[in-house]
């Protein structure tokens, strides 16, 4: 069963052709790692999947639902797709619990105590149950990103998109976030992760996608990508970051 089906997607920013006919698929429960040089279009692709950016042509299906600009459909779709940002984007005026329950209460109309229970469970999954009453500014970057992941998990999404979830973190905090993501992947969550953490990719990814100048020039399981990349660009890129 395909969870994500991206078909020949094109995207421009003005004159700039950012995505040049991207197609990629993820099966339910798979973890994909998307990598490539800065400016190659990784974030843009991810943002198109939940329509934070519009696309010019092509189609995107999430669990067989077409991603469309129709606002009511889009809200339903987004509630089913988690998005974890590079800079966490927690809500600073809400407690950790408030951050994790907001979507449940506002979007899913979950009653207060039920939302609280779900949120505490999600926070437990990321190892931060005891921080429920704290505020985002009282947490380290790694903890904040784990809260952001809990905020996604709590919505019980079909898939979670991660845009460089660890690249804003101090090196010693990266491990705890990757650990949580690995757990999620093992529990069968479908994930598409933009990341240059090659250790994580090797251990966790089912598929890797190498994006170059707006084109998907290489894809395959980590074993192939690391051992014998087909293209010169991919080989050089991997050498440079390993």
């Amino acid at each position: 069963m395909l969870m994500l089906d991206v078909k020949d997607v094109h995207k421009h920013f003005g004159q700039l052709h950012v995505l040049k006919g991207i197609s990629l698929q993820l099966e339910r429960g798979e973890t994909g790692v998307l990598f490539g040089r800065s400016g190659s279009g990784k974030s843009t692709l991810l943002r198109c999947i939940n329509y934070l950016e519009s696309i010019d042509s092509g189609e995107i299906y999430v669990d067989s639902e077409l991603v469309t600009p129709d606002r009511a459909k889009l809200r339903k779709l987004r509630a089913n797709i988690g998005f974890v940002f590079q800079h966490f984007n927690l809500f600073p005026h809400l407690s950790i619990l408030g951050n994790v329950t907001l979507g449940l209460k506002v979007v899913k109309k979950t009653p207060e105590d039920e939302a609280r229970e779900i949120a505490l469970k999600a926070l437990e999954d990321v190892g931060l149950k005891e921080k429920a009453e704290n505020y985002p500014e009282e947490l380290s970057g790694g903890q904040q990103q784990r809260v952001a992941i809990a905020r996604s998990i709590a919505m019980n999404p079909k898939m979670i998109l991660f845009d460089e979830p660890t690249s804003a973190l101090d090196p010693e905090l990266i491990g705890e976030v990757l650990e949580v993501m690995k757990d999620l992947s093992q529990q069968g969550m479908t994930m598409l992760v933009v990341s240059h953490e090659m250790g994580f990719a090797r251990e966790t990814a089912d598929k890797m996608f190498f994006l170059h100048n707006g084109k998907l020039v290489e894809e395959g399981p980590p074993s192939e990508i690391f051992r014998k990349p087909k293209t010169e660009e991919c080989r050089r890129f991997i050498e440079a970051i390993l």
Binding site: L52, L77, F91, H93, V106, V107, M155
Partner: peptide, 27 residues
């Protein structure tokens, strides 16, 4: 209020009005 706050809210499936009410205006 930063764009990231909007993006985090709508990514949860929140509407424009709910985002204003629960996330943007309080800040």
């Amino acid at each position: 209020v930063g764009r990231g706050q909007w993006e985090a809210s709508v990514s949860l499936g929140m509407s424009y009005v709910d985002t204003l009410r629960y996330v943007i205006l309080p800040q």
